[in-house]
């Protein structure tokens, strides 16, 4: 991840932005379910220089173990039980972009909808939180997440699900996520989701040629807590094309329809069948 001259110039430019970011709004009243009030993050891929300050901040705060890959210190390729966030590089000829990965903290998360024991929850402040004392380790969350985020401690005898917590513990004390507070270029900022969207939209309006004209996560899968601005197509950054319906919507609608339907309708149908059968109505032998 060597810095080109152009990247260096970007760093200088972005540092000016950091000054603005330092004066961030402080938090969201807990207890709200207004998606705009959730704490979230905005990642501007065009401002990221790949310095990994964020990933180191994550390690320090969350006490995760650095991964040694083929003799390289802390060089994870993907999210893992020990790596809750990382910076990846997309390259295609001239075009290139960094991209930060971590839990998206969806407004209406598939993992929370599927978790049978409420080990995963959407907290009032915004983070999707995990309680190992509830979790039975069924891994349905890993299976359902459209962003392939939750990981499992496969090496442990009694493993936990791991993923970015949005530093819910820091948020509870009025601080921001460790990664966003450490970012030196202003590529990653945190705040109320609504204000981040407004910020992102003003950037899109101010420099329409710099960006793809979209904030990824503003509406995708019904909105995510972590949102993206980019100069290259979002699919190239591993952010899948999804529509604006929350993933759990169809599942929960069908549940609300079918389950009471079967519980009430089932016995009625059986009663009807029984009374018909008793009169020999359906039986050809009668």
């Amino acid at each position: 991840m060597s810095l080109s001259r152009r990247d260096f110039l970007k760093v200088v430019g972005a540092t000016a932005g950091t000054a603005l970011v330092a004066a961030q709004p402080v938090l969201a009243a807990p207890g709200t379910t207004d998606p705009n009030e959730y704490v979230g993050m905005l990642y501007d891929a065009t401002k990221c220089v790949g310095c990994n300050a964020c990933t180191n901040a994550c390690r320090q705060w969350n006490k995760t173990t650095p991964e040694i890959v083929e003799g390289l210190y802390d060089a994870p390729q993907q999210l893992s039980a020990d790596t809750w966030t990382l910076i990846q590089l997309y390259q295609d000829g001239e075009a290139s972009s960094f991209v930060k990965r971590q839990c998206m903290h969806c407004v209406d998360p598939a993992c929370v909808s599927g978790c049978p024991v409420e080990a995963l929850k959407k907290s009032a402040a915004g983070p999707v939180t995990y309680d190992p004392n509830r979790c039975i380790g069924c891994r349905y969350c890993m299976y359902t997440c459209p962003f392939h985020v939750p990981r499992f401690e496969w090496k442990e005898v009694i493993p936990e699900i791991t993923k970015c917590t949005l530093c819910a513990d820091r948020i509870a004390e009025g601080n921001g996520p460790a990664c966003a507070e450490r970012c030196p270029t202003g590529a990653l900022i945190w705040g109320k989701r609504g204000e981040l969207i407004a910020d992102g939209e003003s950037r899109l309006a101010a420099e329409p040629t710099r960006y793809i004209n979209k904030i990824y996560g503003k509406e995708d899968v019904g909105g995510t807590g972590v949102m993206y601005l980019s100069a290259v197509a979002f699919e190239h950054l591993g952010l899948p094309k999804v529509d604006n319906t929350p993933v759990p919507e169809i599942s929960e609608a069908i549940g609300n329809l079918f389950l009471p339907g079967i519980i009430v309708g089932g016995p009625l149908v059986l009663a009807a069948l029984h009374s018909i059968a008793k009169r020999g109505g359906l039986d050809e032998e009668a």
């Binding site: 909808s113 599927g114 978790c115 049978p116 024991v117 409420e118 190992p132 004392n133 509830r134 979790c135 039975i136 380790g137 069924c138 891994r139 499992f152 009694i158 493993p159 936990e160």
Partner: peptide, 16 residues
């Protein structure tokens, strides 16, 4: 299930 020592949570509220 990975966390089998607490498998009974599947039937113990709070349930989703």
């Amino acid at each position: 299930i990975g966390r089998w020592p607490q498998f009974y949570n599947i039937l113990v509220p709070p349930l989703n």
